[in-house]
Amino acid sequence: MAAAHDKIKELKERYAKLPVAHKGAVYNTDLIFHIELGYMLDAAETICASGLVRKESRGAHYRRDIPQRNDEEWLRHTTAVLEDGAARIGTLPVTITEWQPEARVY
């Protein structure tokens, strides 16, 4: 995950210098894909950075180094704020209403 995080950082640097070949103003998919790629890199970085911070396994977020769920420390939402071109990760408490958290076993 750390390696992926570095790779995304590198890709973001390359992306900053990426030109848009087609300059048209009508149905310019070259431009659309360019914009989308930027957002995809932001999303990828958010996933990676929050995954690194969350030191447990929960649902689809699974870490081989920490396979256990940890409600005491991590029954929290992850937040990500874009700051100086990078994702700053924080957390927020979870408000539990009708559904009580429980281990998902199959």
């Binding site: 070949a21 310019n28 998919t29 070259d30």
Partner: peptide, 12 residues
């Protein structure tokens, strides 16, 4: 074609 030859080709 769009990816390798001509990025201006509009296809939906």
């Amino acid at each position: 074609v769009r990816e390798e030859v001509d990025p201006s080709l509009a296809v939906r």
